[in-house]
Simulated scan of single mutants.
Amino acid sequence: MKILITGGAGFVGSSLAINIKTNYPSYEVICLDNLKRKGSELNLPRLAKAGAIFVHGDIRNKEDFDALPIVDFVIESSAEPSVLAGLEGTPDYLINTNLVGTINCLNYTKKCGAAFIFLSTSRIYPIKAIEKLNFEEAETRFVLSDEQSVPGVSSKGIAENFPLDGARSLYGATKLASELMIHEYNEFYGMKTVINRCGVLTGPWQMGKIDQGVMVLWVAKHYWQQQLAYIGYGGSGRQTRDMLHVKDLYRLIDFQLHNIDKVNGEILNAGGGVEVSASLQELTQICQEVTGKTIPISKVAENRAADIRLYVTDNTKVTALTGWKPEISMKQIVTEITEWITENEEALAYVLK
């Protein structure tokens, strides 16, 4: 099998490539990346050691696909992943990467006669609709109620049939627009496709920052004993997300690579679910336990643009269809990230510190 992974030197792309090569050494894995994100260059030796092929290119440029060989699968994991992208200044890079770039990937996939696995995001769901959901305010987190006035949501989280009317951030809009194009290629070109709407992805080798990769950021700030802040919702730190370890995501992608007919045309929410979720308060507690360090955390009452109170993934559909569900716990995730920073402190300091 030959596989092209876009964003292949990024956190998700490199993790998928290394896991595929580890489990299927005979597969040819090509990683295309423009190395724009700070720290992505640190993954190049890891990819080389695993036997993956790195190609320096940009999905925004159609001609960068011309030199690539014919493949069996394209895993589209490239993105400008920040929910704040384009809100200040021009959205050109965001749109050209997350939408035009995906269309370029689809055209390359069509030329190859290949199948297409797309990593979308939970951020395609509208902000105001999520903010209006019924919730309870527990001691350390916000919790979704079972009684809701809209479909696709319960105490289990948000499902695929949650309403899509409304604004969702420029980032979310580009990913949803890409999803719409994928449906068209599936229907009218007969391309085999699957869309994965991922919750918050995390794990070692993620170059976390304030607007994307929050879990690594939280662990890193504890490790180096730097300040953090609970921003928004009164500064309580109760806002809640589920987390999905990238190795758990790999297990789902592995299934899809080898059972594409079973998931062809599907949209699948995939996240940590209630079982692997935490509020900022709870994440702070876990970081303190694992690192043995306590840091100052300030409180900012005002909400940030495009923020939401809580998001938890309802994995009911993907579990029923594939048998997949997340296995790696919050504490294990924090422990692995802490160990990774400890082992690579000098190399990571300029990115994370």
Rank of each mutant, 00 (worst) to 15 (best):
residue 183 H to Q: 14
residue 178 S to D: 08
residue 166 G to C: 03
residue 168 R to V: 05
residue 173 A to H: 02
residue 179 E to N: 08
residue 152 G to E: 07
residue 193 T to C: 12
residue 192 K to A: 14
residue 173 A to S: 12
residue 160 E to R: 11
residue 164 L to G: 06
residue 175 K to R: 14
residue 185 Y to E: 12
residue 153 V to D: 05
residue 186 N to T: 13
residue 180 L to P: 00
residue 186 N to S: 15
residue 195 I to R: 06
residue 186 N to Q: 13
residue 158 I to C: 09
residue 179 E to G: 03
residue 165 D to S: 15
residue 155 S to Y: 09
residue 157 G to M: 10
residue 185 Y to N: 13
residue 167 A to N: 12
residue 152 G to P: 05
residue 184 E to F: 03
residue 155 S to I: 12
residue 186 N to R: 14
residue 182 I to K: 09
residue 158 I to S: 07
residue 186 N to M: 11
residue 165 D to K: 13
residue 157 G to K: 02
residue 154 S to I: 08
residue 170 L to G: 03
residue 155 S to T: 11
residue 152 G to R: 06
residue 164 L to V: 00
residue 180 L to N: 14
residue 195 I to F: 07
residue 159 A to P: 08
residue 177 A to Y: 03
residue 183 H to R: 15
residue 181 M to N: 14
residue 189 Y to G: 00
residue 187 E to C: 07
residue 184 E to W: 02
residue 162 F to R: 08
residue 176 L to H: 09
residue 171 Y to G: 08
residue 179 E to I: 01
residue 156 K to P: 00
residue 181 M to F: 08
residue 161 N to P: 06
residue 194 V to Q: 05
residue 179 E to W: 02
residue 186 N to E: 15
residue 185 Y to G: 13
residue 173 A to L: 12
residue 176 L to S: 06
residue 186 N to A: 15
residue 181 M to W: 01
residue 154 S to F: 09
residue 193 T to M: 09
residue 172 G to S: 02
residue 171 Y to I: 03
residue 187 E to H: 15
residue 180 L to A: 14
residue 171 Y to F: 13
residue 186 N to L: 00
residue 167 A to Y: 14
residue 169 S to C: 06
residue 189 Y to L: 10
residue 172 G to A: 05
residue 167 A to F: 15
residue 158 I to T: 13
residue 191 M to T: 13
residue 178 S to Y: 03
residue 161 N to V: 02
residue 193 T to A: 07
residue 153 V to I: 15
residue 193 T to L: 04
residue 156 K to E: 12
residue 154 S to L: 13
residue 178 S to R: 01
residue 154 S to N: 02
residue 178 S to E: 03
residue 195 I to W: 06
residue 191 M to W: 05
residue 181 M to G: 00
